[in-house]
Design a protein around this nucleic acid. Structure first.
Length: 423
RNA sequence: CGGGAUGUAGCUUAGUUGGUAAAGCGCCAGGCUGGGGGUCUGGAGACCCAGGGUUCGAGUCCCUGCAUCCCGACCA
């Protein structure tokens, strides 16, 4: 991608209302643009990051055999009346949208009310169970207060998986499988060190709930981390909402020592049991011919929120940084040339084309009229892990300068050594 | 939904006891530059959030509304 062609621009100034780090940096880098409070548009570089996160999640969901679907974003009022969630006093984040005539629809904030009746068409007997179905889709929640940039919006991208079982024991087994997949997701996103499996209230639908909380200075939740578990190399915490000082014990180790931390909830998983299958009468036939409610689990993970969390966790004063595999590009190439005829430009351009042909994703800063300083600052802001500078100075030694955005280490390398390094 | 703060050029802001709007950045044209948002000259760009009110006169004072951010409540 040529930087001269990229329609987004970086900005030196933060928007006056960008109080949170993610809102400030993602907007300054031109990754996202705020449409209104809690609602963002994703621009070319930001969309690549969002898609990369999405792909990590998708691969781990596929790996455990769950099947990707794409459920409708609108749904009929009746489905929500069936579960009692149409009533704003019961469920205040549901957007009610008018349809033709007297009809009213819901803009889906979650999809139990869609997938449960849907599965009535397909689940007949115990032979059809168990299985999992997931989707990655925009969710709409009428939050009374949107906040913290893309961390808590009224419109956001979420992966939600629903699982269907004959009994609680099979749900318990599958729940563990999903936990394993989630662990893998946090490892791949480079967040494992900061992520704690957090025991939380089940809300109004279940006594069971686990959250994946990522420790962040500006986290909106407070968790109590089990010190005992940490000593055993386990990341276990209790959400403040169910923590009783002096009483609560670590459910994994039995330990009684905790340390308090601020964290952001990246994922939340629930054992639904028959909470939704009962009202929708989603049942299956057992081996003895009798009928029983399907047992369900649901497993959410905030894709766009993870992008915000990664920004909060990784960005430095100079701009964005991303874990490997998540950045919008693999490298950012800057020729320090005054004209496109100079060797430093032609060598850099040739390198760019070679890397692109080899499947690397690169930004090439062909904006040679811009000052050197502004182009270096842009390289830092845009967040590529590697920056390659080709200048008359480095060319004298027939070398390129390679700088690591994370370690700030700089190395002069011969072009062929550099190319070899990448293969 | 309660409380607080803020709305002035594309962006960030200044604007005195009320007298008809200023700067930096960005943008456009042209120089000089070239390893960290460089520099000089010239230029374009604002119904001062909206609607009422007070006043000879309102960016400025008053009322109402809207928007945004923050705190709280809320958060499958």
């Amino acid at each position: 991608m040529l930087l001269s062609q990229l329609f987004t621009k970086t900005s030196k100034d933060a928007a006056h209302d960008a109080e949170s780090k993610n809102a400030e940096f993602l907007a300054r880098a031109g990754y996202v643009s705020k449409t209104m409070a809690g609602v963002y548009s994703y621009l070319p570089l930001g969309l690549r990051v969002l898609r990369s996160i999405e792909q990590v999640v998708r691969e781990e969901m596929d790996r455990i055999g769950s099947q990707e679907v794409w459920l409708s974003a609108l749904s009929p009022k009746e489905n929500w009346e069936t579960t009692g969630r149409w009533d704003p006093k019961v469920f205040d984040v549901l957007f009610h949208v008018p349809g033709a005539g007297d009809q009213e629809y819901a803009l889906n904030p979650t999809h139990e009310e869609i997938i449960t009746p849907l599965m009535k068409q397909y689940i007949r007997s115990y032979r059809d169970l168990p299985f999992g179905a997931y989707q990655i889709q925009t969710k709409f929640r009428n939050e009374l207060r949107a906040k913290s940039g893309i961390l808590r919006g009224r419109e956001f991208l979420m992966k939600d998986l629903y699982s269907f079982h004959t009994d609680q024991a099979d749900l318990d087994r599958y729940y563990e499988v999903v936990m394993g997949a989630y662990d893998q997701i946090f490892v791949r996103l480079g967040l494992a060190e900061k992520t704690y499996l957090t025991f939380a209230s089940g809300g109004s639908f279940s006594q069971y709930s686990h959250e994946y909380q990522v420790v962040l200075e500006k986290g909106e939740d407070t968790i109590f981390i089990s010190i005992e578990a940490e000593k055993q190399g386990k990341h276990i915490a209790i959400n403040k909402e169910i923590f009783k000082p002096g009483e609560t014990k670590c459910p994994v180790t039995g330990g009684t020592e905790f340390r308090e931390a601020k964290a952001s909830e990246a994922a939340n998983i629930f054992k639904l049991s028959n909470k939704f299958s009962a009202p929708f009468e989603l049942q299956y036939t057992k081996e003895d011919g009798s009928r029983s409610d399907v047992i369900m689990g649901c497993y959410g993970i905030g894709i766009s929120r993870l992008m915000g969390i990664l920004t909060e966790a990784c960005a430095d004063e100079a701009g964005l940084r991303w874990p490997s595999g998540i950045a919008p590009v693999d490298m950012h190439i800057v020729p320090l040339a005054k004209t496109a005829d100079e060797e430093s430009y032609t060598v850099a351009k040739a390198l760019y084309e070679k890397l692109m042909k080899a499947g690397k994703r690169c930004l090439f800063d062909d904006r040679i009229d811009n000052s050197v300083g502004s182009r270096m600052a842009d390289a830092d802001m845009l967040g590529s892990a590697l920056r390659i500078v080709v200048s008359p100075k480095t060319l004298k030694e027939k070398k390129l300068e390679v700088k690591n955005r994370w370690t700030a280490e700089m190395a002069l390398m011969e072009e062929k050594d550099f190319s070899n390094l990448l293969t």
